[in-house]
Simulated scan of single mutants.
Amino acid sequence: MTRYEKYFIPVYKRIDKEITGGEGSTLHAKDGEYLDMFSGLGVNILGYGNKKVNKAIEEQLRKHYHLSNYFEAESVGKLAKYLIEHSFAEKVFFSNSGTEAVEAGLKIIRKYGKNNGRKNIITFTNAFHGRTLGSASITAPDKSSFYNNSGMTGVLTLEFNNMKDLDKINSDAAGVFIELIQGQGGINVAENDFVRELKKRTDKFKVILMIDEIQSGMGRTGKLLSFENYGIEPDLAVIAKAIGGGLPLGALLANKEFCDYLGIGEHGSTFGGNPVSCAAGLAAIKQIGQEKFLISVQKKGEMLKDGIRQLKKKHPDKIGRISGMGLMIGTEILKNEGKVRELFENEHIFVNMTQGNILRLLPPLIITEEEIYRFINSFEKVLKLL
């Protein structure tokens, strides 16, 4: 049991380590330093102690912590302007989290469906979009079975990467919601032909295409947003996790056709677009959005995957599928997967497992080559003990 566990509703399985600080890709615990290979589930995308993010937070704190959305805060406006100028979107709505951004998008899709006699929202197997009732309704049943489909009716689940299933997209659908790289679902990457056909059918039948960039966005794949890897643009997109530079923030991006679909009073958030979070997010995205930085993410991602591929050659009975883009990588563990996290902790490395046997790597994008080599060397030691 962790130090304060008895005070919490037991919805998390916590790691029994007391963290005292962090710097770069390293977390400081009472028993030593740990290389963080999942960066707060993808939130701390620039690692810990980023000077520009820290400075932005400190400067904003001296101005004000919070204004209601009756006022326009400069940091909020500047982040909105950056996102619009560097994406497909015409306007943005800020929330506190990814699942709240999803709910805002679902509201647009439902209103569009009501206005046009369309009843279905389409999602995909192995999807994960959040834990509120709406977002859970478009999450694959085996991920949140307690409340799956309890929040909304008219949800149709298609098989991810199944071209034939896309034939089911027609004028009955109001919207399609998809992660192009499924994170919680096991780092499943959408195939190019599948994505192109999906875009073709949503355009043909005038179905809203909404892409979930909560985990794959903010440079994680080597592009600012993952759909850029496919040469398409959605109608709506949601971003969260890393967008706040480590602080709580989410965003719904909307194109010209749908950016004014919700009017005054139809949606809102007391804390959405907090000025401190937006200041941190702006400082982060200005660093991440640099072409040189994004190229480095691609190179380091290939280095990490190449290292894992070499380990697979040595241990084909212990490593299965290797997948991902940039620094969002999944490795299927074929043997004694329940021991993986503990064995890595013995090497002073924090890792994350999803779907039971998928080692999900989401390191800070500022991870160094030396740290990648260290991880690969430790991974080999772990494999020998499985």
Results as ranks from 00 to 15, higher is better:
residue 66 H to S: 06
residue 67 L to K: 11
residue 67 L to S: 11
residue 67 L to W: 14
residue 68 S to I: 02
residue 68 S to N: 02
residue 69 N to H: 11
residue 70 Y to N: 13
residue 71 F to E: 09
residue 71 F to Q: 03
residue 71 F to A: 06
residue 71 F to S: 05
residue 71 F to K: 01
residue 72 E to M: 10
residue 72 E to Y: 13
residue 72 E to F: 12
residue 72 E to I: 14
residue 73 A to M: 02
residue 73 A to Y: 02
residue 74 E to Q: 08
residue 74 E to T: 09
residue 75 S to D: 00
residue 75 S to I: 06
residue 76 V to I: 13
residue 78 K to Y: 11
residue 78 K to R: 14
residue 78 K to N: 12
residue 78 K to M: 13
residue 79 L to T: 04
residue 80 A to N: 09
residue 80 A to L: 10
residue 82 Y to S: 00
residue 82 Y to T: 05
residue 82 Y to H: 10
residue 82 Y to F: 14
residue 82 Y to R: 02
residue 82 Y to W: 13
residue 83 L to G: 09
residue 83 L to C: 07
residue 84 I to Y: 00
residue 85 E to F: 00
residue 86 H to L: 00
residue 86 H to T: 07
residue 87 S to F: 01
residue 87 S to A: 01
residue 87 S to W: 00
residue 88 F to R: 00
residue 88 F to T: 02
residue 88 F to Q: 03
residue 89 A to R: 00
residue 89 A to G: 04
residue 89 A to F: 10
residue 90 E to T: 04
residue 91 K to V: 06
residue 91 K to H: 09
residue 92 V to H: 01
residue 92 V to T: 06
residue 94 F to S: 08
residue 94 F to M: 03
residue 95 S to L: 10
residue 96 N to G: 09
residue 96 N to L: 15
residue 96 N to T: 15
residue 96 N to H: 10
residue 96 N to Q: 13
residue 99 T to H: 13
residue 99 T to S: 15
residue 99 T to P: 03
residue 99 T to R: 12
residue 99 T to Q: 14
residue 99 T to V: 14
residue 99 T to M: 11
residue 100 E to M: 14
residue 100 E to T: 15
residue 101 A to S: 13
residue 101 A to F: 01
residue 101 A to H: 02
residue 101 A to M: 06
residue 102 V to N: 05
residue 103 E to M: 12
residue 103 E to G: 10
residue 103 E to Q: 13
residue 103 E to H: 12
residue 103 E to A: 14
residue 104 A to S: 07
residue 105 G to V: 01
residue 105 G to D: 05
residue 105 G to Y: 03
residue 106 L to F: 11
residue 106 L to P: 04
residue 106 L to C: 07
residue 106 L to V: 09
residue 107 K to N: 02
residue 107 K to V: 04
residue 107 K to L: 14
residue 108 I to H: 04
residue 109 I to Q: 06
residue 109 I to C: 08
residue 109 I to D: 04
residue 110 R to E: 15
residue 111 K to N: 08
residue 112 Y to F: 13
residue 112 Y to D: 05
residue 112 Y to I: 03
residue 112 Y to L: 05
residue 114 K to Q: 14
residue 115 N to L: 14
residue 116 N to R: 04
residue 116 N to I: 07
residue 117 G to T: 06
residue 117 G to F: 08
residue 118 R to K: 15
residue 119 K to D: 15
residue 119 K to P: 11
residue 119 K to S: 15
residue 119 K to F: 12
residue 120 N to E: 15
residue 120 N to C: 08
residue 120 N to D: 15
residue 120 N to S: 12
residue 121 I to A: 09
residue 122 I to D: 06
residue 122 I to C: 12
residue 123 T to D: 05
residue 123 T to Y: 11
residue 123 T to K: 12
residue 123 T to M: 07
residue 124 F to T: 09
residue 124 F to Q: 06
residue 124 F to G: 05
residue 125 T to D: 13
residue 125 T to L: 02
residue 125 T to P: 04
residue 127 A to W: 10
residue 128 F to T: 01
residue 128 F to Q: 03
residue 128 F to E: 00
residue 129 H to S: 08
residue 129 H to E: 03
residue 129 H to T: 06
residue 129 H to M: 09
residue 130 G to P: 00
residue 130 G to E: 01
residue 131 R to C: 10
residue 131 R to N: 14
residue 132 T to Y: 07
residue 132 T to C: 07
residue 132 T to D: 11
residue 133 L to T: 08
residue 133 L to I: 07
